[in-house]
């Protein structure tokens, strides 16, 4: 049994992401054998030149999308946290889309059922967007590691600041 904090998902570093959408193309190429961002499981957003981020499913604990589905078409895989869509049961009502705070649940333009990131579970080397990201802004990590990284950079910043203050006082 995998603990929730050990589940991996794809996340973008806002410091590094430049909104180039290579991830969208890599995703649609891998999953749909075509180039079409509207069929990508990850979407990048540029709200301004300095505000860029790619977003996909974060495999939430107690996922709102699953809870919202009136037809029990969505289930969460125990070990991976991946949201599985039963394409027979889904009727495209989009309640899960409104429920997801990340916009990570999307309507497939042709199948008319929802789709989301499955962490490229059928690919040997994991999520292809991570592999293709030219900025190394995307990582496939657990929430535990994300927390560790945040702590490390917080501590580094603190000590950097302390050093600079010391230097100023000299």
């Amino acid at each position: 049994m995998v603990r929730p904090q050990d589940r991996k998902f794809v996340t973008a570093d806002p410091e590094k992401c430049i909104g180039c959408v290579v991830c969208e193309y890599a995703c649609s190429m891998t999953k749909e054998k075509t180039y079409n961002p509207t069929k990508s499981r990850i979407r990048a957003l540029r709200l301004g030149p300095l505000v860029n981020l790619a977003i996909t499913c974060r495999h939430c604990e107690d996922p709102a999308c699953v809870a919202a589905c009136p037809r029990n078409a969505l289930t969460q895989e125990e070990n991976t946290g991946i949201i599985i869509v039963d394409e027979e049961a889904c009727d495209g009502c989009a309640w899960c889309i409104s429920a997801c705070q990340f916009g990570a649940m999307m309507m497939h333009p042709e199948k008319k059922v929802v789709f989301t990131c499955d962490s490229c579970k059928n690919e040997q080397d994991g999520p292809q967007c991570v592999k293709w990201c030219p900025e190394e802004a995307l990582t496939f990590v657990t929430s535990d590691v994300l927390a560790q990284k945040a702590r490390i950079s917080a501590v580094k910043n603190l000590f950097q600041e302390a050093k600079e203050k010391k230097a100023e006082n000299k």
């Binding site: 430049i18 180039c20 959408v21 290579v22 193309y25 030149p49 300095l50 860029n52 030219p134």
Partner: peptide, 19 residues
């Protein structure tokens, strides 16, 4: 220069955003 961003599909990035 605050950030260097890029265009769609480009792995290079060259847009020097100056503020």
């Amino acid at each position: 220069v605050k950030k260097i961003v890029g265009c769609a599909t480009c792995g290079m990035r060259c847009d020097h955003i100056a503020a």
